[in-house]
Amino acid sequence: MTDAAHNSPLSDPIPDKPPRSQWEEVWSQFRRHRGAMISLFILVVIVAGTYLGPLIWRADPQAIPSTLDMIKQRDARPIYTSIWDSGAKVQWANPLGTDNLARDNLARLMYGGRVSIAVGLLAMALSIVLGALVGVLAGYFRRLDSPLMRLTDLFLALPLLPLILVASLLFREPLSAAFGVEGGTFVLIVSLIGITSWMQTARIVRGDVLALKEREFVLAAKSVGTRPGRLIRRHVLPNVLSPIMVSATLGIATAIITESALSFLGFGFPPDFPTWGRLLNDSVDRMVSFPERVLWPGLMISLTVLCVNYIGDGLRDALDPRIRGR
């Protein structure tokens, strides 16, 4: 503050807008990342397409017509095929064609996306909760630090893909009995992915909590008698939110890829239950004649993961106060 300003406080320009909150700052920085903004748009379109699309496109993804109709309608190519192949079998009723049982490919793609995205989000949520819990406990309570970090190291040393494959076979029966075939597989896959992907988050959060613990505001909160639980919720957690958010975003991408990989290897959802990985796996055998059945699910997986990764990149830049405001 200069002397002049000190002497005449009334001549200071009065701010016409209230000061911007932290999240407004983050948003304005995020908007400058072109890739992230485009990705956010595409991702919103994909999610809206999978969740709202079935309200408009009312074909049933599981419905198999009666025998004669099925033989007539099955194995139709997408409409755009007729541009270069006038003899192709296309039907206006099925814009992306039908599969070998005459089920509508577009409807299956939408329902498959619902499942894949839901698995991605829930598995990410589970892994973030686990990771943040372990990280905060290890960083805040010195007594828990060593055993929890040993556990994290141990999980990092486990060969995860083989173990997920084994476990997905082992626990399938009991969970299917409890939640039904599809529900059981859903619970199984979400928990398997969540349980095997929390380690990076835990490490990052622990490091940040260790640094935060030495700061004055934590000491101040402690000195007025705040209990550890409240201190963590009120003062520590909000400050480690940005690394958690970044790893949450990237976690969605990993979870979607893992789910599709499991379905692709035949260890995921049951046959006939559409998810993007499952659709891809079912179509690989006939991909020479019907490349679109492989391309569309694969493109959707890749595009979703690409968008999520870009958003993660943009978020990391936006949440980094050293870059923000530049």
């Binding site: 890739g35 991408a253 890829i257 990989a261 692709f264 991909m287 492989v294 694969g298 993961v305 990764n309």
Partner: peptide, 16 residues
């Protein structure tokens, strides 16, 4: 970024 995001079971099928 694309190479990072495209899963191997799709890129494999695509190159085939």
């Amino acid at each position: 970024m694309v190479g990072f995001s495209v899963p191997p079971f799709f890129s494999g099928v695509l190159v085939i």
